Amino acid sequence: HNLTITQGKLFFHYNPKLCLSEIHKMEEVSGTKGRQERNDIALKTNGDQASCENELLKFSYIRTSFDKILLRWEPYWPPDFRDLLGFMLFYKEAPYQNVTEFDGQDACGSNSWTVVDIDPPLRSNDPKSQNHPGWLMRGLKPWTQYAIFVKTLVTFSDERRTYGAKSDIIYVQTDATNPSVPLDPISVSNSSSQIILKWKPPSDPNGNITHYLVFWERQAEDSELFELDYCLKGLKLPSRTWSPPFESEDSQKHNQSEYEDSAGECCSCPKTDSQILKELEESSFRKTFEDYLHNVVFVPRKTSSGTGAEDPRPSRKRRSLGDVGNVTVAVPTVAAFPNTSSTSVPTSPEEHRPFEKVVNKESLVISGLRHFTGYRIELQACNQDTPEERCSVAAYVSARTMPEAKADDIVGPVTHEIFENNVVHLMWQEPKEPNGLIVLYEVSYRRYGDEELHLCVSRKHFALERGCRLRGLSPGNYSVRIRATSLAGNGSWTEPTYFYVTDYLDVPSNIA
């Protein structure tokens, strides 16, 4: 807008934040220059609390790290170098490059900038070799853009010569660093050979998330399962459950009422301010606690030095998902009996873990797994792929695949051998790939016309006998059925096997 004052003059007093240069501009645009008398524009009460600059400061050096910015700028000295009290560095987070010096300023003089007072450097006698002032900004957020400017702080001049310097606002972004852990990993099994893994992005990506790394490792069953005799009275049979499938998407929606109208769909109840505040506090606490764990609990591995020492970490090797089922080394339970199943799973520490690289999504279907087997899954978020990966501390989750139908069934015939004193040795093959492992066998036998009897055969007993022995049988026709019990439950009964026990007292003698 054009402003013209045809008559009258300007009068400025007691404006401590208004620089004289701005008042002189007002004289020019209003056409009143030359009308004012000496005392109409006070030299001592206008701009006496402001830094009124008329020179431009330029930054000469900028260096960044993930949490620091090192700045240096060209030296500046007023005509009387004693008038320079120091520099004021202003900075704040700036997602967009549209910041002005006066953003967030209120009537009390406060604003949204963080201000650092910096002492002037030592003055050199040689004007050509003056030290460049600077400042190291610490405690910054990774991968965050900051708006920065600097200006001088000078003393009051009796001659009211307006001098000083100020830089333009520059924008500097800190470097990326390792992201925080992925949030809320959930693993479920939808079949006997697959596990579905879902997660949420890290709360602090500290860069642009480029991919996720998912490692999985087959877990050995508890050692007590191999040692305890679950045929003993009072000892509860062990059981394991597989990871249940995901709930429906509708039930997972946030901010939804727990109660549904019987007449149909209901609208979600909005969260109160107290609920939102509580969630923010919980989120802040979780982030602080995660940072504490990362800094205190997890110790970084030592990389190899120039002395030739090897990095103890196993090298990563990509495998196809079809090879995942046989990740671990199978060892027989008892070496003397080769027909026992290889369900003991000690994992070799030198073995390469299978892994998958996930790009542009937060889910993965891990296939080719062994049925009813526990897996430990390790999830890392990465925001750099080359020249070397920059990934987060791992988040861990466990899951067990679903049982395989008929995996616990005894394959092959049940054979028998009759000894003296009416002892019958029953023999059968253990299931080759049971659900988890076989903890015991149930032997059901009966003599024709009598009630059915049951015998429990422990895992250890089966390994020693290759089956079991029935003792003290009365003469007669017998039928026997056997079924295995694994961590997933009972298998199917075998087809009945028949044998006849004679009275050993009636056996004919070869003595003449």
Rank of each mutant, 00 (worst) to 15 (best):
T307A: 06
R319H: 11
G322R: 06
T210V: 12
F246N: 14
Q219T: 11
P496C: 15
S315V: 10
T502G: 09
E265Q: 13
S262E: 01
G234I: 14
S363A: 13
L455K: 04
F226L: 09
S479C: 03
N477K: 08
Y498E: 10
F215K: 08
V334T: 10
F499A: 02
I410A: 10
D291V: 09
I276W: 09
H461I: 12
H371Y: 12
I276Q: 15
E420V: 05
Y212F: 15
C269P: 07
K278V: 11
Y441K: 00
E247R: 12
L237W: 14
A381E: 02
Y504A: 08
E388M: 10
G264M: 10
E495P: 10
S342I: 03
P413K: 12
V365I: 07
K357T: 08
E279I: 07
R483W: 00
P245K: 10
L440S: 08
A220I: 10
F226G: 06
T494Y: 02
R481Q: 03
Q256T: 08
V324A: 12
L505G: 13
F419Q: 07
E247P: 11
L379V: 06
N435V: 00
S398W: 03
Y478A: 00
L437G: 04
Q429L: 10
H416M: 11
E290K: 06
C456E: 03
H254E: 04
V327K: 15
R301G: 04
I482D: 00
L379S: 01
H454D: 14
N255D: 09
I438L: 08
S320G: 14
P312H: 12
S223H: 11
K432R: 05
Y448F: 13
G207Q: 01
F298A: 15
T497M: 12
V359M: 14
S274A: 04
S243N: 12
L464D: 10
A381S: 11
V480Q: 02
W493F: 10
S444T: 11
F246L: 10
A395L: 10
E389P: 12
E362L: 06
S509L: 10
T347H: 12
T373H: 10
L470M: 09
P332T: 06
T241Q: 13
L293C: 05
E417G: 07
A335N: 12
F419W: 15
C267Q: 10
P300H: 11
E351M: 13
L228T: 07
A336C: 14
D385V: 08
N477I: 05
P475M: 08
S486Y: 01
P349Y: 12
S243T: 07
E362M: 09
K236M: 09
T210S: 15
D291E: 14
A399F: 07
F462V: 06
A395C: 09
E350S: 12
S348T: 05
T288V: 13
E260W: 13
E417P: 03
S398P: 12
L237S: 06
L473P: 02
V331H: 15
C267H: 15
A463Y: 06
V424G: 02
A309I: 07
E351T: 14
G467K: 07
F337N: 15
L321S: 09
R313W: 13
N360V: 11
V443H: 00
H371Q: 09
E217F: 06
H211E: 02
T485M: 08
G234M: 11
G449N: 08
T497S: 07
